[in-house]
C-alpha cells in the first residue's frame, strides 16, 4: 500500500484580513483625496450653489438671506440683462462685457510674445540662466506692485511714458484718465507678467523638443518659419494648451490690476465683471449682494464655456493616448 504523501488535511485558510485590507487598492486613493475633496466642496462647490441661491434674492448682505432677504425670482437677471418691457441693459454690464471682451482678446497676445522670448532665450550663451530669470522676474512680482509701477509709469506729468513721448516731440497723454485708452493701459500692464508666465511654459516645452526630428527636418531643408510652424510648434502643443488655459482664466479674473490702477474709473469705464461684482457688493456702491451674485453667476457661465472646452479637449487627448 502506497502511502499518500503527507499533505496537510485541512484546506488552506488564508489569514483573516480586515475589511480595509481587503479593499485597500480601491479605497486608499479616496482616502488621500478626501481632504482635498472636502475643502474643494466646502470652499468651491457649495459657494457656487449658494451664489445661485442668493442671486434670486434682494439682500443687503446684513443678517441672514432667509430673514432679511426678499425673494425676487429672476428680477436681478432681468435688471442686468435688460430683459422685459421698458428695461434697458445695465450700463455697467455693457461696459464690463465690452472690457472683458478686450481683456480676453488682447491678453492672448501674451502667448505669441511668450513664445518669441522663449525662442530667443533658448540658446547657450554665457549667463543665459541670469537672463532667463530676469525675463521671468515680472511674474514673481505681486500684481498689486505691477499695477502700482505701471500707474506711475503712466502718470500724466511726472510719468516716464510722458517723459519719453515729450523727448521725441510728442504730446503728453493721460492713458488711465482717458476712458478710451484706460482699459488698454491696464491690459498692457497685465501682459507684462503674463508674457513672462507663457515664456516659462514654452522654455520647459522647448526642452522636450526631440532633437532628432529637428535634425531630420534640417536634412530635408526646413528652416526659419517652416521649421517653426511644422516641426517645433506641433511638439509644443501641450505648452500652448496650458498657456491658453491660464491666460484665458487670468483675463477673466483680472481684478487686482483694475482695482489698483483705476478703481474702475474714470467714471466706471474700466469696469470688468469681476471688479464690478466687488464694487456692487463690498465696494462703495455696496450692499447689493443679490445683484452681485447674479453677476457672479453670469461670469461663472462665461467661464464655464471655456472650462468645458478645456476639459473636453483634455478628455479627448487622454482617450487618444489610451487607444
Amino acid at each position: 500500500m502506497v502511502e499518500a504523501p503527507a499533505v496537510p488535511q485541512e484546506e488552506h485558510v488564508p489569514p483573516r484580513r480586515g475589511w480595509y485590507r481587503r479593499n485597500e487598492i480601491a479605497i486608499t486613493p479616496w482616502l488621500f483625496l478626501a481632504p482635498g475633496i472636502l475643502f474643494f466642496a466646502v470652499y468651491v462647490i457649495v459657494p457656487i450653489f449658494q451664489s445661485f441661491d442668493i442671486s434670486l434674492y434682494e439682500w443687503s448682505g446684513l443678517g441672514s438671506v432667509a430673514e432679511n432677504g426678499e425673494y425676487v425670482g429672476l428680477a436681478n437677471y432681468r435688471d442686468i440683462l435688460g430683459i422685459g418691457p421698458d428695461e434697458t441693459m445695465d450700463r455697467d454690464f455693457e461696459i464690463s462685457i465690452r472690457n472683458n471682451f478686450w481683456w480676453l482678446t488682447l491678453y492672448l497676445l501674451a502667448i505669441p510674445f511668450g513664445l518669441g522670448i522663449a525662442l530667443f532665450l533658448n540658446q547657450t550663451v554665457a549667463g543665459i540662466r541670469l537672463y532667463k530669470s530676469l525675463f521671468f522676474f515680472p511674474f514673481v512680482l505681486s500684481q498689486v506692485i505691477v499695477g502700482l509701477v505701471f500707474s506711475w509709469f503712466y502718470l500724466p506729468n511726472e510719468g516716464l511714458l510722458n517723459a519719453i513721448l515729450e523727448f521725441f516731440g510728442g504730446e503728453g497723454v493721460n492713458i488711465l484718465g482717458d476712458p478710451d485708452t484706460a482699459t488698454f493701459g491696464i491690459i498692457a500692464a497685465g501682459l507684462w507678467p503674463q508674457t513672462a508666465y507663457c515664456m516659462i511654459l514654452y522654455l520647459t516645452g522647448l526642452n522636450a523638443v526631440d532633437p532628432e526630428q529637428v535634425e531630420a527636418a534640417r536634412l530635408d531643408g526646413a528652416k526659419g518659419w517652416r521649421m517653426l510652424w511644422h516641426v517645433i510648434l506641433p511638439q509644443l502643443k501641450p505648452a500652448t494648451f496650458i498657456a491658453f488655459v491660464v491666460t484665458v482664466i487670468g483675463a477673466l479674473r483680472s481684478f487686482d490690476l483694475v482695482a489698483i490702477m483705476t478703481n474702475g474709473g474714470p467714471f466706471g469705464q474700466t469696469n470688468i465683471l469681476s471688479f464690478w461684482i466687488w464694487d456692487v457688493s463690498l465696494g462703495e456702491g455696496g450692499l447689493k449682494y443679490g445683484y452681485a451674485s447674479a453677476i457672479a453667476v453670469i461670469l461663472f457661465g462665461i467661464m464655464m464655456v471655456f472650462i468645458s472646452y478645456f476639459i473636453w479637449s483634455m478628455w479627448r487627448d487622454e482617450r487618444a493616448v489610451r487607444r
Partner: peptide
C-alpha cells in the same frame, strides 16, 4: 450708498 456711487461717478 448706491445713489452716491452712481452720482459721484457722474460728477467726475
Amino acid at each position: 450708498a448706491e445713489m452716491a456711487s452712481v452720482a459721484m461717478e457722474g460728477f467726475q
